[in-house]
Simulated assay, not measured.
Amino acid sequence: MFVRAYLRASTFEQDASRAREVLEQFAARHDRVIAAEYLENASGAKADRPELLRLLKDARKGDVLLVESIDRLSRLPAEDWQKLKAAIDSKGLRIVALDLPTSHQGIADTKGDEFTRRMLGAINSMLVEMMAAIARKDYEQRRERQAQGIKKAKDEGKYKGRPVDADLHKRVAELLRAGLGIRSTARHADCSTTTVLRIKREM
C-alpha cells in the first residue's frame, strides 16, 4: 500500500502544508508512512490542478489518496467532480479523509468478511459523494454572500475595493522586471499569482 497525501490551500497567502503533521500522525497510528506528498495552492473549485493531476498520474491500484477533508480534494461542480471521481476510481485509488471515519478502513489492514467490507465501502462511497456536494454548496454560498456584501457596499457608496499596497506593488514590479516568472514572483513577494498578474497588467 502506497500512501499519497494531497494538501491544498486556496491561495498563496494560505499555508498548504498546514495539515502535514496531522496527516503524518494519522498515518503513523495505522502503521503507515506517507510515501509521497502533493502540495499546491489552488482553488478546489478548479479541475485543472497540476499536483492533483500528477498524483493521479503517479498512482497505482491499491494506493491511498489521503486528505484532511473531502473539501481539500474538491469543491467542484457536480459534472467536474464526477470526472475526477471516475479518474480516481479508474486508478484504483482509495480516498481516505481524516474527517470521514468510514473511509479509514481504506488505510487500515482490515481482514473482515467480504460482506462487511462491501457494505462499509458502499456507505463510504455515499458519504464521500455527500461531502463533495456539501463542499461545493458551501463554496457557492460563500461566493454569493461575498457578492451580496460587495453590492450592498457599492449601493451605499462604501465599497472602495481592496486598498493598494504600494510596497507590494513595487516589490512585484521589481521582480517581474528582473525576469522572474509569475509563480516565482508570487512566491518571493508572498502574494497570490492573481495579484502578480494584475500588477503585470497595470505595468
Rank of each mutant, 00 (worst) to 15 (best):
R94L: 07
Q105W: 03
A178G: 11
Q82T: 10
S10D: 09
K152V: 14
E202P: 08
V22H: 14
T185C: 10
L175Y: 11
Y139A: 02
A42Y: 15
P77K: 06
I34C: 07
L65T: 00
L100Q: 03
Q148V: 09
K83G: 06
K57I: 05
H169W: 09
G149C: 09
S90N: 14
K151S: 10
D48I: 05
K170R: 11
L180S: 10
Q14E: 07
A45G: 12
D138C: 05
Y38M: 06
D58I: 03
L76N: 04
L180H: 12
D109H: 14
Q141E: 11
A27T: 04
A147P: 09
S184M: 09
Q105L: 10
T110C: 15
S69C: 05
V164I: 12
K91R: 15
D167Q: 13
A78F: 03
A16F: 06
A189Q: 00
D99Y: 08
E156R: 14
M203P: 07
R75E: 02
Q14H: 12
D58G: 09
M126W: 02
L7S: 01
K85A: 08
V22N: 15
N124Y: 00
A47F: 11
K151D: 08
P163L: 02
D113N: 15
K152T: 12
L93R: 01
A108C: 03
R183F: 09
